[in-house]
Design a protein around this nucleic acid. Structure first.
Lengths: 331, 331
DNA sequence: ATCATTAACCTTACCGTTAACCTTACCGAA
DNA sequence: TTCGGTAAGGTTAACGGTAAGGTTAATGAT
C-alpha cells in the first residue's frame, strides 16, 4: 500500500480510503490510485485489515463428512453465498467425531472467524454450549438440539419421513422396517417421529422390532438389513435413513435374490443425485441442501451485523428455519 | 496475551516464547503461563501472528464443483492432511467457470494464503501462468496442463481408460462408443489416449463417429447417448467419462428398453460409491481421490517450506505425481 | 476584511504477535 | 577480584492496515 501511495503521491491513508469507498476523497485522486493499484498489482492484506478492524471476514464451516454429497452440496450453497457477500470460508471436517469438533472450533477461534456454521456431531453438546457462552455468532445446519435454543436451519425431516412412510403404508405394506440413523442424531429422531405419525394416522402401531438405529453408511445398510432379515422376515418394505443406507439394503437384498420392488419395496432419503437413474429408481425425500447452506449463511451474517443489537430483542429472538422437503415417488 | 502476561507477571514476549516452544524460558514459568492461558481461555490471534510472521498458515483450495463426490472426497483428503499439519484451508468453488477461478485466486492472494491447491477450469491457462509469474506456491490436482510445467498430482487416467476399454474389447465388443468429457479437460484427453491405445493394441481403429466430447453431468450422459443412438445404433458398449455420465446413459437406455448388460454394456469412471450397489453394478475405474488430496497438500507444503531453496535445484525440479488407478470389473 | 465551513487530505496511534536485540543476575575460571 | 559466559528474561520495532482526529487551502457569508 505504501508503494501505491508513493507512486500517486498521497498518504497510505488516502489509498485506504480510496479502496474502501470512504468519503473525503477526490474522484480524480481515487482514479489515479485505482490505476496505480492495478499497475502495481497490489492486493490489500486481509490479515492486517482483519487485525485492525477486529473482523476477519472469514466464516468457519464445520461439517460431519464433506465427502458425503449431503454436506458437500450444502457447503456449495454456503460457499456461493459467502463469495457473493465477500466472505471467505474455512472448512473443517469432523468425521462424526466429537473431539474433532472441539479441535475445529478451537482452531476457528484462533483464526478469529466472524462466525461459525456448524453441523454438530451430536454425541455431546459441549461445543455448542461453549459457543453460546462466549457469544460467538453461530448457526447450526441440518441438525439441532431440541433442548438448547440456538439459531438453526434444518429441513422438515418429520414431514419427509411422514410422507415416505405414508407412501409405503398406502401401497398396502403393513410391516415397514425402519433402518434409522444414530439415536443422538436429530435428523434420525425427527424422521422417527414422522414414521410414527404416519402409522398413527393409519391407526396402526409400528412393530418396534422393525425399528433399528445407527445406520449411516452403505455398509451399515447392508448389515442392518441382513440382521433384520435373519431374525424377522416379516416385513415387505424398508424405509432407510438415507439413500446410502438404502443402497446397502438394495445390495444385500439383491444378494439374497429378493426382487425389488416386488418382494421388497425400499425408500430412501436425501435425494442423492444418482438414485433417480437406477433401473428401478429409488423413491426418496428431496432435501434443499444448497438452500439450507445459503440460508444458514444469511442468518449468520445477520447475527454478525446486528451483534450489538441483540439486546434490542431481549437477546431471545431466534432464527429457527425449517425448509420444506418433498417426497419423490418416482413411479 | 497481555492479560496472560500480567497474571503470570512476565512480559508478553515470554508468553509468546512459552506458546511457541522457543528456548530461553524456564520450565516453571512456562508451566505457569500455560495454566494461565487455560484459565483465561486465551486463544492466540492467528491474524496477528500471520501478519508478523508473513505466513498465514492458510492454504487456498479451489475446485470445480465441491458438490461432486470426486472433488469433495479429494477435499476430504486435503483437509485431513492440512489439519494434521496445523494449516487451515479456505475453500472456493469455481463451478467450472474460468472467471470464478480468476476471482478465487484474487481473493486468496488478499487472504495471503501460503499456497494454493487448484483444480483448474481448463478453458484458459491465464491463472496458472500468473501464479507462476508471481511465484506463489501452488499444486494442480486432478488436472494438468501438458504445455505448462507445474507441480501436479493426478491419477493414471490413461491407464484407467485403457483397462476399461480393453475390458470391453476383450468381451468381444468391437464398436465401443466413448462419451467423453470436455475437450479442454486434461482428464478427458488422457482418457481418450487410453481408449485409443486399447484399440491400437487390438489392431483395430476406433470408429471416430462413436467418440463424442463435452459430457459432464448425468443429463449430458442421457443427451449424448440419445444423439449417438439416433444416428448410429451400431455399437454394443459405451465407455462413459464418469459414473455420473454413465448413469445418464443407463437411464436413457432404460427408457428405450435396452437391456443392460445384454443389449448394451456400460462402463463408467471414478468409482463413485453407489455404482457398486446397483442391481447390475457398473464397472468403473477407481481413482484414489483422497490420496490425491493428501499428496497434493504434502507437496505444496514442501514447496512452501523450501521456498528459498528452490534455486538449489536450479528452480526446475517438479513434482509430477501420477497415482495408480484400478479398473473394477464387478463381475 | 474576517471568520466559519468544508473538501480533501495528512498524522498518529493502535490492532496482537514475534524477531531482533538488550539487560540482568549468577556462576565458575583466571 | 575481575571477567566472560549463560540462563532467563525484558524492550522495541515492525508486520500492513484503519479509525480518529488534526491540518490546509479554498469558498462563501457577513
Amino acid at each position: 500500500m505504501e508503494d501505491v501511495a508513493e507512486v500517486v503521491g498521497v498518504s497510505v491513508n488516502t489509498v485506504s480510503r480510496a479502496l474502501n469507498d470512504k468519503p473525503d476523497i477526490n474522484s480524480d485522486t481515487k482514479k489515479k490510485i485505482l490505476e496505480a493499484v492495478e499497475k502495481l498489482n497490489y492486493h490489500p492484506n486481509r490479515l492486517a485489515r482483519g487485525l485492525r478492524r477486529q473482523k476477519s471476514g472469514i466464516i468457519g464451516v464445520i461439517v460431519a463428512d464433506i465427502a458425503n454429497p449431503y454436506f458437500s452440496t450444502m457447503v456449495k450453497g454456503l460457499e456461493e453465498e459467502a463469495t457473493e457477500r465477500d466472505y471467505s470460508i474455512i472448512l473443517q471436517d469432523t468425521d462424526e467425531k466429537y473431539q474433532n469438533e472441539v479441535d475445529a472450533i478451537e482452531t476457528m477461534m484462533e483464526e478469529r472467524v466472524d462466525g461459525i456454521i456448524l453441523s454438530p456431531v451430536q454425541t455431546e453438546a459441549g461445543t455448542v454450549e461453549r459457543l453460546k457462552e462466549q457469544h460467538i455468532p453461530f448457526v447450526l445446519v441440518a441438525r439441532k438440539f431440541s433442548d438448547i435454543p440456538t439459531d438453526y436451519v434444518i429441513s422438515d425431516e418429520r414431514g419427509g419421513a411422514y410422507h415416505a412412510t405414508k407412501f409405503l403404508l398406502e401401497k398396502g405394506h403393513e410391516k415397514v422396517a425402519f433402518i434409522n440413523g444414530p439415536v443422538h442424531n436429530s435428523s434420525a429422531l425427527d424422521r422417527l417421529k414422522g414414521y410414527r405419525r404416519a402409522f398413527a394416522e393409519n391407526g396402526v402401531e409400528p412393530d418396534e422390532d422393525l425399528i433399528t438405529h445407527g445406520a449411516v453408511s452403505t455398509e451399515d445398510g447392508s448389515r442392518f438389513f441382513k440382521l433384520l432379515y435373519e431374525k424377522e422376515t416379516d416385513f415387505s418394505a424398508v424405509f432407510a435413513f438415507s439413500d446410502f443406507v438404502a443402497l446397502g439394503v438394495l445390495s444385500a437384498a439383491h444378494a439374497k435374490d429378493i426382487k425389488i420392488p416386488d418382494d421388497l419395496e425400499v425408500v430412501g432419503y436425501d435425494d442423492i443425485e444418482f438414485t433417480n437413474c437406477m433401473s428401478t429408481p429409488l423413491p426418496s425425500v428431496k432435501v434443499p441442501k444448497r438452500e439450507m447452506g445459503r440460508r444458514a449463511l444469511d442468518i449468520l451474517l445477520k447475527r454478525i451485523e446486528f451483534k450489538g443489537k441483540v439486546e434490542e430483542y431481549g437477546g431471545e429472538e431466534r432464527f429457527e428455519v425449517k425448509l420444506p422437503t418433498e417426497f419423490l415417488e418416482r413411479s
